[in-house]
């Protein structure tokens, strides 16, 4: 896996660890927010890819600097590495949806310090910078959060915006995409994922309304590539128009 910077302003950085070398499990991105030497991990990934995620992480930040981690929902591609991280750094505080606490401990981390996020969301301070837990319930998990960094204007959007890309993919949806052709090509790889994994149009519309109020320069999904600049609005428009819950249609 590779590490690359998403955002940087002095001692405030966002990193993406992407393009994993194991194709038997779903390709996942792991994000790191760094502020004043303290790091925060977002959706640290599955048990199987932990060694490569960890090696790539050391390209970005020293592991000792990790203060906390965020788990958007209970899926194994997101949380099953928890015991390994805990073994490496037992001081990491884990912020997880309150609803899933008892489930997540099943991954084998009975002692890990878990902090529950209530349904309404909340805030956390990392290295003097505030991150917001934005409710995104039913997208796709019944208790589900995204993370917004108002200073960097980064929205970590979990499974929303996810696309299934082949090995060797880049971190970004082509940023020189003036006419939107690259976006159009990319979004085809996201369509089925959203139609089938996202269960509720109501939840979707609620989320779009909530997120549209945020200023977003980078929309960072847990699978696929980052939407930046005008592509963010393109994505929101596309998602708003997309009927979801196709499993029972």
């Amino acid at each position: 896996m590779k590490a690359t910077k998403v955002f940087e302003a002095r001692d405030h950085r966002w990193w993406i660890l992407y393009d994993q070398e194991e194709s038997r499990v779903i390709d996942s991105n792991v994000y790191v927010m760094e502020s004043q030497g303290q790091a925060f991990l977002l959706d640290p990934g599955g048990f199987e890819i932990f060694p490569q995620v960890f090696a790539a992480l050391v390209e970005a930040v020293p592991p000792a600097s990790i203060q906390g981690a965020f788990v958007s929902h209970q899926d194994p591609d997101i949380a099953s590495s928890l015991p390994l991280w805990h073994a490496c750094n037992p001081k990491i505080q884990w912020h997880i949806p309150a609803l899933w606490e008892g489930f997540i401990r099943h991954y084998g981390a009975l002692e890990a310090p878990l902090q529950d996020i209530p349904d309404a969301g909340g805030n956390i301070l990392i290295g003097g910078r505030r991150l917001e837990f934005i409710p995104a319930h039913y997208l796709h998990s019944s208790a589900n959060f995204h993370v917004y960094d108002p200073e960097a204007k980064v929205l970590f959007s979990g499974d929303v915006g996810a696309a299934l890309l082949p090995p060797g993919h880049g971190a970004w949806v082509d940023r020189r995409d003036a006419d939107g052709k690259a976006f159009a090509a990319h979004i085809e790889k996201a369509r089925y994922f959203h139609q089938r994994w996202m269960p509720s149009n109501r939840a979707k519309n609620d989320w779009i309304e909530r997120v549209s109020k945020l200023e977003i320069d980078y929309l960072c999904p847990q699978h696929g590539a980052i939407y930046s600049g005008p592509q963010v609005q393109r994505f929101l428009d596309w998602f708003a128009a997309l009927p979801v819950g196709s499993g029972i249609a």
């Binding site: 060694p51 960890f54 090696a55 050391v58 390994l84 490496c88």
Partner: peptide, 14 residues
């Protein structure tokens, strides 16, 4: 060679 070493160590941990 640093990354492979770390990765190998983490595989042992795993």
């Amino acid at each position: 060679n640093i990354a492979p070493l770390i990765e190998a160590q983490m595989r042992i941990l795993q």
